[in-house]
């Protein structure tokens, strides 16, 4: 899996690169010109594209990609959450749009979704240890025992599996499950209920307890 990160802010670029590097083959550039060179030579499974670059517009780059009939998946990351920009980007053929500031785990989720959608040949089965998710049929098995999950529990498990071995803060999990506009007042009791239920279902099916609490700040799915 090859990912190209196009982001001019060096700190953000470095964070994305570091976070994604353990799962994908990543390359990163900071300018429109560098990006153009990379796109011309290589093919990527997904391109993380910042709209505002110092020497050009990300949307222009997207236009170039689509004109050239490149099949790379594209996720736009932008500080502008203007609906028009979003629609423009998606109309130009971007697969997804993420507004800054975002959680790296959320970006990882979106990239994974794009890659899964584009690779129709298989690849819709994810697994960590003895937990297997078929994302096409939304089927979860633990130790080959199928388990019944609610919508939220399924989303939660998928989020954990895709971001396996990463500490995910409660706030990031809540934002992933309930969206950003929700007003949670830093009170995540209801999140705890979902985690508890998910843990129970996995443990009962004989999967042990893969979800580790981390100092009350968040959770981590430990791949064994």
């Amino acid at each position: 899996m090859k990912i190209l990160i196009i982001e001019d802010e060096p700190n953000l670029n470095a964070s994305i690169l570091e976070y994604l590097s353990c799962s994908y083959l990543c390359e990163s550039v900071h300018t429109y010109k560098e990006a153009l060179e990379k796109i011309d030579v290589h093919e990527y499974d997904c391109i993380v594209l910042d709209v505002m670059l110092p020497d050009g517009s990300g949307l222009q780059l997207l236009q170039y990609l689509k004109d050239d009939r490149k099949n790379d998946g594209v996720i736009i990351i932008s500080a502008k959450d203007g609906l028009e920009d979003k629609l423009k980007g998606l109309a130009l053929g971007a697969d997804d749009y993420l507004t800054k500031p975002f959680h790296l785990s959320e970006l990882r989720m979106r990239i994974e979704a794009i890659i899964r959608r584009r690779n129709m040949n298989g690849q819709h089965v994810l697994s960590v240890g003895n937990i297997v998710i078929n994302t096409q049929e939304k089927l979860v098995t633990v130790n080959s025992n199928e388990i019944e999950l609610t919508q939220k529990e399924y989303q939660l498990l998928l989020y954990f599996i895709i971001n396996k071995n990463k500490v995910l803060s409660k706030s990031a999990i809540a934002q992933h499950l309930w969206g950003d506009e929700m007003d949670m007042s830093n009170d995540y009791d209801f999140l705890y209920t979902h985690i508890k239920n998910l843990r129970k279902k996995i443990t009962v099916a004989g999967g042990g307890d893969p979800i580790i609490s981390v100092y009350g700040i968040g959770y981590k799915l430990q791949a064994r």
Partner: peptide
């Protein structure tokens, strides 16, 4: 939004650091 995005991404990265303790966790939160 951009500097906030940088902070958020750095916090996400910091969370992955296995060396911090409960106190740092509280600060991070």
């Amino acid at each position: 939004q951009t500097p906030v995005a940088v902070i958020r991404s750095k916090v996400d990265m910091l969370l992955q650091n296995p060396e911090w303790n409960e106190k740092s966790a509280e600060y991070l939160q």
